[in-house]
Every structure is written in structure tokens, then in C-alpha cells.
């Protein structure tokens, strides 16, 4: 089988054709931080956390949607990248109201973990303190927009795996929000099958099982990959 050979952080590595930089890096044991990416779902490059440097390109490229090419030179870690990643995380924290100590996902939150892993020391940007609602009209689940980072994993899992497409994004810029059906309360969204895949996919405490108190919301994010594999590859072993 033909492979692409390229340079990853100064070392020659190979990748299967069509593999993204992110996939090739993982195959070679190199970690690139991600947030909007979830195995089993399509990639959209929304969060920009996986930005990498590619020799010859003045712009940073998101590893999750950049295909490997023969002879490319990729750098996944540099002071410049670390700075950008920290800035992205700071902006995410400043944009909405993330209050870790009382959050249902405290200790099980990907945003929190990325902030720690990437040495996000403080937030340079003014907190926006937007006034956002919590929707717990659904019988079993709730969405707290204060904690949403607009990664759209919920939108993709609902569309691509469940096939219901209950979730979508409305609004522009800082006014963007995930919505259910035609921007109706979740409890009134007739397309929702109550499958709970969006709950498992959510990286933060934004989508949660109702009744959760602080730190109780553990997402089983690998369930999404399991279902995707079961469907596409007819494999049922986790």
C-alpha cells in the first residue's frame, strides 16, 4: 500500500494516504490538543486548537482537516503554537460563564483539561458575562448555554450518527447558539429521539443529564466512536 512520507517535528514518518495530519500524528504517538474533534464524527476545524505549522505555508493549519502530503514538514509544538492555543482557550473561557467549582462536569471537562494541559495561566481578555439561559425543558437532559463552546459535536452526532438533526446553530458571531429544532425549547423539539448521544459527546458541562449536581456529569465520549464503528465497520467490540 502506498504511503505518504513526511516530516513530523523533525522526524520522518509515514501516513496512510488520505490521513489527516491529526490522524497521522496520533498513529505516530504525537499528541495534538483538540476540542471540537471527536472520534466517530466528521471534522470541521471549528475550535482551532489543533493548529500546526507547515513549512512553506505562512498560515497555521488545523491538523484535523489538513490532509498529509508527500514530503510536507509539520511542526505540532512551538512557542508560537503554544501561545495561540492558550489564547484560544482564554477566549473560550472569557466568552461565556464557565464556573468550574459548581459545574456538573467539574473534573470531567475537556475544556478544563485542555486549559490545564496547555498551561493556560490566566485569562487576558475581559469576561463577557453574557446573560444566557439554561434549558431543562427536556424530560431527561438539559443544556446550559453558559458552558457551551460551540464545538458543534452535538449537532454532528445528532445529524451523522442518530440521523435526527435536532441540533443546529443559530445566530452569528457572539450571538451564535446551538438550538433544538426551530429554536424551540428542547422539551418541545419533536425530532429529538432522547437517545442521549449529544450528552455523551459534549466536551463540557453544557449538555447534561438532569439532576446532576457539581462534578457528577461524566460523559462517555468513546461511546460515540463505538456506535460509529458498529455502524460502518460492523464491529461491536469497544
Amino acid at each position: 500500500m502506498a504511503v505518504n512520507t513526511f516530516t513530523l517535528n523533525g522526524e520522518l514518518v509515514s501516513a496512510s494516504p488520505g490521513a489527516t495530519v491529526l490522524e497521522a500524528a496520533r498513529e505516530n504517538g504525537v499528541e495534538i490538543p483538540t476540542l471540537c474533534e471527536l472520534e466517530g464524527l466528521s471534522n470541521i476545524g471549528a475550535c482551532r486548537l489543533c493548529l500546526v505549522e507547515i513549512a512553506g505555508s505562512p498560515r497555521l493549519q488545523p491538523a484535523c482537516v489538513t490532509a498529509t502530503t508527500e514530503g510536507m514538514e509539520v511542526r505540532t509544538d512551538s512557542e508560537r503554537l503554544r501561545q495561540y492555543r492558550r489564547m484560544i482557550l482564554e477566549l473560550l473561557f472569557a466568552e461565556r460563564n464557565h464556573v468550574c467549582p459548581v459545574c456538573v462536569a467539574n473534573g470531567h471537562c475537556e475544556l478544563q483539561s485542555r486549559a490545564i494541559d496547555n498551561g493556560m495561566e490566566f485569562v487576558r481578555f475581559p469576561y463577557q458575562h453574557p446573560d444566557l439561559p439554561v434549558d431543562i425543558t427536556h424530560a431527561r437532559f438539559g443544556i446550559d448555554h453558559n458552558r457551551c463552546i460551540l464545538c458543534t459535536r452535538c449537532v454532528r452526532v445528532c445529524d451523522e450518527i442518530e440521523g435526527a438533526h435536532t441540533w443546529d446553530v443559530a445566530g452569528r458571531g457572539t450571538g451564535s447558539r446551538v438550538i433544538t429544532d426551530l429554536n424551540q425549547p428542547w422539551g418541545d423539539a419533536t425530532t429529538c429521539t432522547t437517545c442521549g448521544k449529544c450528552v455523551e459527546a459534549c466536551p463540557t458541562g453544557a449538555i447534561f443529564r438532569k439532576g446532576s449536581s457539581a462534578g457528577e456529569m461524566e460523559h462517555q465520549r468513546d461511546r460515540i466512536r463505538f456506535i460509529a464503528d458498529a455502524r460502518s465497520k460492523r464491529e461491536w467490540t469497544p
Binding site: N97, V99, P101, V102, E121, F122, V123, R124, F125, P126, Y127, H129
Partner: peptide
């Protein structure tokens, strides 16, 4: 009443660290 640090305080926490 608020659970976040102001910009000034978070910068100062870093300096203190």
C-alpha cells in the same frame, strides 16, 4: 457576587504565581 476573577486580578494571580 461573581465567580470569575477580573482581568486585573487574574493577571495578578499570575504575577503572584
Amino acid at each position: 457576587w461573581n465567580e470569575n476573577l477580573s482581568g486585573r486580578a487574574s493577571a495578578n494571580v499570575q504575577i503572584a504565581l
